[in-house]
Amino acid sequence: NQASVVANQLIPIQTALTLVMMRSEVVTPVGIPAEDIPRLVSMQVNRAVPLGTTLMPDMVKGYA
């Protein structure tokens, strides 16, 4: 099973992502693949992302 990127904390809207905000976890449905974590650093979320939420491509500006 492929690991996805999951929020390690509440990430407020417009926040630039850092490594400490994300973790990898095998979840359903599958979100952004964990191997993309380095690419996500400094990208902004376009909505508030609660703790434990799987990051989906449409939540990160410039990802999809």
Results as ranks from 00 to 15, higher is better:
32 I>L: 04
28 T>S: 15
43 M>L: 15
4 S>D: 02
48 A>Q: 14
29 P>R: 04
51 L>M: 13
51 L>F: 15
2 Q>M: 11
13 I>H: 11
2 Q>A: 12
54 T>H: 02
13 I>D: 15
38 P>R: 11
8 N>D: 13
22 M>I: 09
28 T>M: 13
41 V>D: 02
41 V>R: 06
57 P>D: 05
9 Q>A: 09
19 L>E: 10
56 M>A: 06
3 A>C: 08
41 V>H: 03
10 L>G: 11
27 V>Q: 03
39 R>S: 14
46 N>G: 08
56 M>C: 06
35 E>P: 06
24 S>G: 12
28 T>N: 14
4 S>K: 02
11 I>K: 00
29 P>V: 05
27 V>G: 02
17 L>S: 00
58 D>S: 15
48 A>W: 12
1 N>I: 13
8 N>E: 06
64 A>S: 14
64 A>D: 10
33 P>I: 06
27 V>Y: 02
2 Q>F: 13
14 Q>W: 15
34 A>G: 08
13 I>A: 15
60 V>M: 05
57 P>G: 07
33 P>N: 08
53 T>V: 13
45 V>W: 00
17 L>K: 00
45 V>N: 01
33 P>M: 08
4 S>G: 04
54 T>M: 04
26 V>Y: 13
32 I>Y: 01
27 V>H: 03
46 N>D: 10
59 M>H: 08
52 G>N: 11
4 S>N: 01
24 S>I: 10
46 N>V: 11
1 N>A: 15
40 L>R: 00
61 K>I: 15
45 V>P: 02
62 G>C: 07
16 A>G: 08
18 T>H: 05
21 M>A: 04
55 L>S: 02
51 L>V: 15
13 I>G: 12
6 V>D: 01
52 G>P: 00
2 Q>C: 06
43 M>R: 09
14 Q>F: 12
42 S>Y: 10
13 I>Q: 15
62 G>Q: 08
44 Q>R: 14
43 M>W: 06
19 L>N: 07
22 M>R: 00
35 E>I: 14
45 V>L: 10
50 P>S: 13
48 A>N: 15
30 V>E: 11
22 M>D: 02
30 V>N: 13
30 V>L: 14
36 D>M: 14
49 V>D: 03
36 D>H: 13
1 N>G: 14
10 L>Q: 14
53 T>L: 09
8 N>Q: 09
6 V>L: 08
48 A>K: 09
54 T>R: 01
24 S>D: 06
51 L>W: 13
14 Q>S: 14
44 Q>S: 13
28 T>R: 12
8 N>R: 10
2 Q>D: 09
37 I>S: 03
2 Q>E: 09
15 T>N: 04
27 V>I: 06
20 V>T: 12
10 L>Y: 15
64 A>M: 15
9 Q>R: 13
3 A>F: 13
4 S>Y: 03
61 K>N: 15
54 T>E: 01
50 P>E: 12
61 K>E: 14
49 V>C: 05
36 D>W: 09
49 V>P: 03
53 T>H: 09
63 Y>E: 03
50 P>H: 10
36 D>S: 11
33 P>R: 08
62 G>L: 07
17 L>H: 01
22 M>A: 01
48 A>E: 14
50 P>G: 09
44 Q>E: 13
12 P>A: 10
60 V>A: 00
63 Y>H: 04
25 E>S: 12
13 I>C: 07
59 M>F: 10
22 M>S: 01
48 A>L: 10
24 S>E: 09
2 Q>V: 13
11 I>P: 00
53 T>D: 11
57 P>S: 08
14 Q>G: 15
33 P>G: 05
36 D>V: 09
36 D>N: 11
28 T>Y: 12
3 A>H: 11
52 G>A: 06
29 P>K: 05
6 V>Q: 03
62 G>A: 10
27 V>L: 04
36 D>L: 12
43 M>S: 06
38 P>M: 12
